[in-house]
């Protein structure tokens, strides 16, 4: 029984770490802010979720587990709202989503909050 719990929490923690690292890699690799949001969503949902549930499984049923699940509930409630806020602000700030056609950059004269004038589709068309 104890061994099962250990193995399960190991698996959950390592799985969470995997999704977390993949999401972070996606943040660096993907071409523009809209696609990066999907990678950020990955760390927020499965990365954080699996690690927190892994901690809860390791801990067993007591008050600490309730608090862990409370943290997870807060994270899962707030993360889509924050992501949506970023998406909406980026759209109204004049950014246009990167597409395979290479539209990438901001709309004409949009400017918005672009702070150094670089191309938003930095990294260019994936090879």
């Amino acid at each position: 029984m104890e061994q099962t719990v250990t193995v399960l929490s190991w698996a959950l923690l390592l799985g969470g770490a995997f999704f977390l690292l993949t999401g972070s890699l996606g943040m660096v690799r993907l071409p523009d802010v809209f696609t990066r949001m999907h990678a950020a969503g990955m760390t927020d949902t499965m990365g954080a979720g699996m690690i927190v549930v892994g901690l809860a499984v390791y801990n067993g049923a007591d008050l600490v587990t309730v608090r862990l699940l409370l943290i997870l509930a807060f994270l899962w409630f707030t993360s889509p709202i924050a992501t949506h806020a970023v998406a909406k602000a980026a759209l109204s700030g004049g950014l246009r989503p990167y597409t395979l056609g290479g539209v990438g950059a901001a709309a004409d004269g949009g400017g918005g909050a672009r702070d150094d004038g670089a191309e938003s589709a930095e990294g260019g068309v994936p090879s």
Partner: peptide
């Protein structure tokens, strides 16, 4: 490169 990337 944009502020939104930084916020994200």
């Amino acid at each position: 490169p944009t502020a939104y990337d930084r916020v994200l």
